[in-house]
Each structure stands twice: as structure tokens, then as C-alpha cells.
Write a protein that binds this DNA or RNA. Structure first.
Lengths: 344, 344
DNA sequence: TAGCTGTCCGAAAGGCGTTTCGAAAGTTTT
DNA sequence: AAAACTTTCGAAACGCCTTTCGGACAGCTA
């Protein structure tokens, strides 16, 4: 009597053995045929492949990994709740070796050390080929230690242990890039509003800002305004600065959120952007940058490239490349929109 | 001569066999001891556990999965580039069975059918226990088909095939919840601005809006304004409405972005929020909702619960629970902030 | 002491592929 | 037709763990 029960998931997934039987060859031959190895006659190969596709054979990656020692999977350990940093990095890692080649296990520790440990164990238990640790700021974070059985790369937030491999955005270069752009569009009376002074990102970007100003022979109109990474701070700081120096013509902001706040206050003050004042943000967070009026020029940290590089590093280490610790800096790039140059 | 070479990753990870040898028992006993099974004397168990921790044994999940048929891993297939929807869902899925119990492979298809297929193959190859498909809007998306060897659950965007299991936010309820809240804070002259009329989310929320109004015996001040899901549209539509009906006292917006735009235009028109006009958004996207002036009351889709439920569904199906197709709707909740009620 | 019950442990069979190495078959050379 | 290669295939070991099932031994009863 035919089985008429509704869909049941996979009585059993077809195995290589099934394929071999159907094709009338041994498992060894079937394996070679499926994997495109040379020592199998073309005719046999076709027979095997036909059998494989007939029963819908998919090799069992678990068994493959068990024997090859590679899972082609990396773990991404993060505390970036927003996903602002981690998603571009994930996409980069996925792409590092072509589409679908490597997969990523994403674990969100939510800033909790204990949960991070659970996730770490789960990743090792699943035998990931390596781990990318993504911090939520560019401040160094504590190392996972040197004892892990797989390569670890720290991305965005470098590790505090110089023996580890870290990849981080070059915030100094970004700050400089931002101010150079404002100067290149004719601004001279420039200020810098940024976030929490306890963040390395704030300090580094400010440093780059000063460098760029000095290189052009300019002096900032006022001290750097440190505060928080919020629109509210952007609004308040902008108001203060405009009152003190009504002739400011350029704002370098430490984040897109701060820049959004600046734009709002400039509106309130009746300044038009970019004609009277140019504003540049940082992070190139699309949803913020492209929804403002005018759209926001910003510095992009090229996180996708950073993710790609992180994945490459892991597999290099696995292939025996010498591991040199330290932090590699990634160059940011400028994304120009309407807040610094009037659209045609 | 001792090997003094620098850290090399895992000469070889210790296996259960190593543990057994060290403890002087068989692999079978070692396995039972490690897994806390009963048929092993307490003394022996302690000896085995000591050996295990001495050499830092971690069971090889690949081998475990090979034999148990469960990987305790689910695939999350998405095209949500922002991560706005997928990350809460991921966190929910991770948590469904306690921390670190199940892991999630996140694949971003970037809206590309071919890439989606690659990822799908990769997931099946890794023998995930199930797949959660996350769309980027609440419109039905095409089914992955009925032929997959693992349970599939569609989240956020339901499948267009009623045989599939889908979980989606109840947008009608959300629209109604929003308008009921405005009414409860004394608003009567209410309008609705929302996004692209081609989106089911826009239509459903608008329907809920009308329901809520009718239930209170009110009539909307104007037609529903359909447009796009952007701040720009929020600004423009608000301006139009205010010109037509200067006495509007409540805006129900179809997204937080639209609401942000509305707030901005209300400022331009000199209206104060929430005193003169109350504004409510949708999605409860923190970065937008908590950075506006005033902060934005919004409707939260409780996506984390949706993710948790999706994971539960997968393992239920795996355990043989009958799979009933169709879409289960998730109730949204109201998050009150300053744009509808003056903070104390 | 013989017989019985219960506790604890281990041999071995899976689970699914990959790889090595030797054997068989086919082809070419003298 | 015999010898010397090539080419093609398969048996078996291996990777690491779980689970079943039978055996050994201790302790108990009659």
C-alpha cells in the first residue's frame, strides 16, 4: 500500500552509498566522480552524476568536515546589538572566497561575558575554522586568550593583547579625510563636534581633524566639542558653537547621528546647507545619511573589506602562514552627498 | 629536542579516545561519563571527568551530529540588508532554548535569487536542523518549495504557499493599536501617513487605522497618505496635510522614518509635540525613535518573540509535531515615549 | 556452596564520507 | 603472443562519537 501520509521530512537523506549502489560502482568511485577527481572514466562519472541527481544527493558536510578537518564555517562573536558594524563585516566574510563558500555563525553576546563564553564554547564545539570577534566600539577589548585551538581575528575593536591579530578602521585618517574634503570645497572656518571623549574613535578622529587643519595652515574656530554619540548632542553643540562664532562655515562631525543633530539646529538658525555651511558625518550609516535634508556626506569605514580581510586571515593562518600580531588599519573612504556640495 | 616553535593551532584536538586512555576506561564508558548517563560508577565518572578537563577535551560536535542526526543549528536566510528585522529575529531564535543551545548560520542573499540558492545549498550541506526565511517586507515571498529535507519557517514575510508555515507581525492590529493610543490621549483630528501602497504592511496598517477610528466613532481628517517609507515623504505629506487642515492634532505614521519627517515639518510649522500634536511611529527602531526631539512613541513588532517562535516551530516539526501551514500573526506592542505624552 | 540479581563496564556496530593502495582490465610495444 | 604500461576501479582504514548488548563481578539469598 502506497504511503499517502503528508510530507514527512526526509525519511533519510540520500547518502553517497545510495548513489554508488544505484550507479553500480563502489563508494570510492562515487566519491571521486562527485568530487571531480581524475581517476575515473568519463563514462562512469556521467553514470554516477546521473544517479546522484536522480535521488537528489547532497554530500553530508558533517562527514566531509570530520575527515577533512575543515568546516568552511567561521564564527562571528559580537556585542553589536544594532548590527551596524557586524553586518557589513559578516557580508565581507561571506564573500571572501566566493558566494556560498564559507558560512558564518553569528553569535550575539549582548555585552555579557557569560553569554560570550557560552557562545565561544558552542562555536568550538561546532569546530568552526576560526573566529572573528567584533567589538562595538573601536576601543581595544580584552583578548580571548592565546589558548584557543583555532585562529582568532579581532575586527573593529582590536584586542588588548598585541600577540593577537586585529583589524581596525583608521580613524585618524578618517578625521583627516573629512576635514580635507571640507577644505577642498572652500571652507576655512571649521569646527569639530564628536562623541564621548572616552572612546578611542573620538580621540583618533579628532587627531586626524587637527592634522588636516594644520596641514592646510588653518586653525579650528574653537576647541573640539566632545560629548556623546547622539543627535541631541549634535543639536546642542551646534547651537553653542553658532552662538559663539556665527561665521562658522564647516562642521566635521564624529558620527552621522551628531551630523543629523547639527543639520537640524542649522535649520533652526536659518543657515542653509551646503551653501552657508557644509556638514560632514562619519560612519556612512545609510538610513541616517540618505534620509536627511540635504543628504549627508560621510566617511565610510569600508567594513565590508575589513570582514573580507578577517576571513582571509583566518584561512591563511590555518594554512600555516606565520601569524604576526598587531593591528592592521583600514583606510576609510569619502562618500559625497548634498551636505557639502550643492547637487547640480 | 623540545619543540619551541611559536603557538601552532591545535596539533590535534583531544578526542574522547584520548580521555578514555588517560582515565584507563573504554570509549564507551568515557562517553557515558562525559554525558552524565547513569550506568557508570561515581568514582569512574570523576576519574574520566578529571582526565577530560586535564587535556581540555571538547566533544566534537560534528561527530555527535553525525550520529544523533541533529546539529542544533538553524539557518537564517535573509535579504534584509539593514539587519533591522533579521537581528531581533536572530536573537530570538538563539534564545529559544536557552543560551548557547542552538546556533544560527546567518546568510545574506542580498535580494539575489542565485545567491539565495547558493546559501540554501550551503545550509543543507551543513545539515542545519531547519531554516528560517526572513523577508524584507511583510509582503508574501515565493516559497522555497515543499521538497526540502528540513523544516522551513517563514518569518516577517509569509510564504505565498499556504502549505508553508509562516509567522508575521499583525499589522492590522498594530495600526489599530496606534490610533487607539492617540485617541486615549485625547486626540480627535487624526490623519495617517504611510509608505508605499504596494506594500501589504501599508495596506494592513491603514486598515487597522480605519478600524480603530470607526470603533471610536471618529472619521479621519483626510484620506490616508500613501507614499514611500522615507523621512522625505513624511516631511512632504505632513506639510500638505497641515496646510489643508491646520487643526490636526494626531499623526499616525506607517514607519519611524515617516514619523521623523513629520516631527521635522511640525517644528518648521511651529507646532509643539506632544502639546499641540501627537505623533506615533511604527517599528520602534531605537536609533530613530530615541534620537528624535521629542523621542518617538512607536509600535514594536516584537520580532524577538517571532524569532523564538520560529525556532520552536522548527524543532517541534523535527520532533514529529503535525505541521499545519498558514500564517500565524504576532501581536505588536505599544512603546510610549515623549511624542504622544509630555514627560512628567 | 550454588544460584540469582543487579551494577558497571567494554566490544563492536553504526553514521557518512575520503583516501590510500593494490588489483583488474585495457592498451601499446616488441 | 608475451611483456610493459596505463587507466580504472574497489576493499578497507580512518575520522570521532553514540548506543546497544552481552559479559564480568560483587553482593545477596536459600
Amino acid at each position: 500500500m502506497a504511503d499517502t501520509s503528508p510530507r514527512v521530512h526526509a525519511s533519510r537523506a540520500p547518502t553517497l552509498n545510495d548513489v554508488a549502489q544505484l550507479a553500480g560502482v563502489s563508494m570510492a568511485t562515487a566519491s571521486k566522480a562527485v568530487n571531480g577527481r581524475a581517476e575515473v572514466a568519463e563514462k562512469t562519472r556521467r553514470r554516477v552524476l546521473a544517479a546522484a541527481s536522480e535521488i537528489g544527493f547532497t554530500p553530508n558536510g558533517l562527514a566531509q568536515s570530520l575527515v577533512t578537518g575543515r568546516t568552511k564555517t567561521v564564527g562571528l562573536l559580537t556585542s553589536d546589538l544594532e548590527g551596524r558594524f557586524v553586518l557589513p563585516i559578516l557580508m565581507g566574510a561571506e564573500d571572501a572566497f566566493g558566494s556560498g563558500e564559507i558560512s558564518v555563525l553569528l553569535c550575539d553576546a549582548r555585552g555579557d561575558r557569560i553569554r560570550e563564553n557560552y557562545h565561544l564554547k558552542a562555536l568550538l564545539n561546532r569546530r568552526v575554522d576560526g573566529i572573528i570577534v567584533v567589538g562595538r566600539s573601536t576601543d581595544p577589548r580584552n583578548s580571548l586568550g592565546q589558548q584557543l585551538p583555532v585562529p582568532v581575528v579581532y575586527a573593529y575593536a582590536p584586542s588588548d593583547d598585541p600577540r593577537d591579530q586585529s583589524l581596525a578602521p583608521d580613524n585618524r585618517a578618517g578625521g583627516r579625510l573629512a576635514v580635507e574634503h571640507l577644505i577642498s570645497v572652500g571652507r576655512r572656518r571649521i569646527v569639530h563636534i564628536t562623541g564621548d571623549p572616552g572612546y578611542a574613535a573620538a580621540q583618533d578622529r579628532a587627531e586626524g581633524f587637527h592634522e588636516g587643519m594644520a596641514a592646510a595652515g588653518l586653525t579650528p574656530v574653537d576647541e573640539v566639542m566632545f560629548g556623546s554619540w547622539t543627535e541631541g548632542w549634535g543639536r546642542d553643540a551646534t547651537a553653542v558653537l553658532l552662538q559663539r562664532h556665527p561665521d562658522i562655515d564647516g562642521f566635521v562631525c564624529g558620527s552621522d547621528q551628531i551630523a543629523r543633530g547639527a543639520l537640524e539646529t542649522l535649520r533652526d538658525f536659518g543657515r542653509s546647507v551646503p551653501e552657508d555651511v557644509a556638514v560632514i558625518g562619519y560612519d556612512n550609516w545609510e538610513v541616517l545619511a540618505t534620509n536627511s535634508r540635504p543628504e549627508l556626506t560621510s566617511i565610510d569605514c569600508t567594513l565590508q573589506g575589513l570582514g573580507r580581510q578577517a576571513a582571509k586571515r583566518i584561512f591563511e593562518a590555518l594554512d600555516g602562514a606565520p601569524v604576526s600580531g598587531g593591528t592592521e588599519l583600514f583606510q576609510p573612504k569619502l562618500v559625497i552627498r548634498g551636505s557639502t556640495i550643492a547637487s547640480r
